[in-house]
Simulated assay, not measured.
Amino acid sequence: MDWDDLRIFLAVARAESLSGAGRRLGLDASTMGRRIARLEASIGATLFLKTPQGYALTEEGARLMAPAEAAEQAVTAASEAASHETGIGGQLRIGAPDGCANYLLPQVARQLSDAHPGLEIQIVALPRVFNLSKREADMAIGVSPPETGRLVVQRLVDYRLHLAAHRDYLAASPPLTSRADLRHHRMIGYIPDLIFDRELDYLAETGVEAAAITSNSVSVQMQTIRAGAGMGIVHDFAIPFTPGVVPVLTDEISLTRSFWLLRHADDRASRRLSLLAEALAQALRREVTRLEALVRAELPSADLTARQKVKKISST
């Protein structure tokens, strides 16, 4: 049994399909199937059962997981020890909620690529929790620390959110001077049954019972707000990317949340991934600080604009 066979076995076990594993390794499904059949023949045991849901590990397959992962760690460590490059190369797959992936990780990826030209960065943006045990990503960014799983959890940075709306919407809508006025406004937020983490239930903190327009995507919510369709709770770091959108009621509604970096516990032995995790953390902190500073610089003028608009409407 050689490492290449174990590499294919691990990919299928984690993806639970030949096609999914093949995409990760750059091989077609038929080749993956032949390699798994060859491995099973060589050890005299069936490793997978094909079910309607995909490929499931048998008892023999489950027993092979631990030694296969140990081999994976050994190969990774040997590769890192043999490398004398000043930069860090190879593939790095980062999983993140779409708000972070859209508004923060592009700038972070640029910084990492500049520092490590041999690095291939993959950003997987999904509004859900990533399964690192199945190696859906090398590391993931979450909005709350997980309570279970063999993970290394690191708090990255706090970020702020405020109620925001486009200036055109504010100019055409009823006055907004306090939280009580929200009942006269169209709200935008998450689809309630698709909120995958309790930390994302923003509207509950405004006192608004339901939103008129909803999406499971932060980016879709932000673009809907930018279109002047209503107002919603948004990340401060996203506001600089949406001209015309301004924070409102900042003295009454202000939320703070945190990003967490999640890694599989077995990856602590990887110097490469540890260095990349620290570089990612530092770059993300800098980017949140930079973008939120831009918003704070505009807050006085934004609040003044809103108050002048309210005063104008009230006097007519």
Rank of each mutant, 00 (worst) to 15 (best):
Val245Met: 05
Met222Leu: 10
Leu25Asp: 06
Arg128Ala: 03
Leu161Val: 06
Asp2Asn: 15
Arg285Met: 14
Lys134Gly: 15
Ser83Leu: 07
Met222Ala: 11
Met187Gly: 02
Asp267Val: 02
Pro127Met: 08
Asp98Arg: 00
Ile191Lys: 06
Glu199Leu: 03
Pro175Leu: 11
Pro117Ser: 02
Ile191Cys: 01
Pro240Leu: 02
Met222Trp: 00
Thr242Asn: 09
Leu151Ser: 01
Val288Pro: 10
Asp5Leu: 03
Ala109Met: 06
Arg271Leu: 09
Ile141Leu: 15
Lys312Trp: 02
Arg38Met: 01
Pro106Ser: 10
Ala125Lys: 10
Ile94Val: 09
Leu18Val: 05
Leu112Trp: 12
Ser42Glu: 15
Ile225Ala: 00
Thr250Val: 14
Glu205His: 14
Arg307Val: 05
Thr177Ile: 08
Thr86Met: 11
Glu147Met: 11
Val295Ile: 13
Glu209Asn: 10
His166Ser: 13
Arg286Trp: 06
Ser314Cys: 08
Gly189Thr: 07
Asp158Lys: 15
Gln111Cys: 02
Asn216His: 14
Thr224Val: 10
His264Pro: 00
Arg63Asn: 03
Arg268Glu: 08
Val152Met: 04
Gly87Phe: 15
Ala11Gly: 07
Cys100Glu: 09
Ile43Ala: 08
Arg167Tyr: 03
Leu151Asn: 03
Phe9Gln: 10
Ser173Met: 08
Gly33Asn: 12
Gly232Lys: 09
Lys309Phe: 04
Asp193Pro: 00
Pro67Thr: 05
Gly89Val: 05
Thr76Tyr: 01
Pro247Met: 06
Glu16Gly: 04
Leu200Gln: 13
Ala13Glu: 02
Gly189Cys: 02
Arg110Tyr: 08
Leu291Pro: 06
Arg285Val: 04
Gln223Asn: 15
Met139Cys: 13
Arg155Asn: 07
Arg226His: 13
Phe196Asp: 01
Ala279His: 09
Ala137Cys: 11
Ala165Pro: 04
His162Tyr: 10
Ala210Asn: 03
Arg7Gln: 15
Glu292Asn: 12
Val288Ser: 03
Ala68Leu: 13
Glu278Pro: 01
Gly142Val: 06
Met1Pro: 04
Ala140Ser: 15
Val108Ser: 04
Pro117Ala: 10
Ala297Met: 07
Asp158Thr: 12
Thr51Phe: 07
Leu64Ala: 10
Pro106Trp: 01
Pro240Gly: 02
Ile123Ala: 00
Leu18Ser: 06
Pro243Gln: 13
Ala302Trp: 06
Val245Leu: 08
Pro175Gly: 06
Asp168Arg: 11
Asp251Asn: 07
Arg290Ala: 12
Pro117Val: 10
Phe259Gln: 14
Phe237Gln: 01
Thr58His: 00
Ile313Lys: 14
Ala45Val: 07
Pro117Met: 07
Pro247Trp: 00
Val129Thr: 12
Val288Asn: 08
Arg179Lys: 09
Pro174Val: 08
Leu294Met: 11
Glu16His: 12
Gly244Ser: 07
Thr148Asp: 11
Val218Phe: 13
Leu261Tyr: 09
Ala212Cys: 07
Val248Tyr: 03
Val288Arg: 05
Ala172Gln: 14
Val12Ile: 12
Leu105Gly: 09
Thr289Arg: 15
Gly189Ile: 00
Leu261Ala: 11
Ile88Ala: 02
Phe130Val: 05
Leu280Asn: 00
Arg93Ile: 11
Arg285Phe: 04
Asp2Val: 04
Lys50Gly: 06
Glu60Phe: 11
Gly189Asn: 10
Val108Thr: 00
Arg307Asn: 01
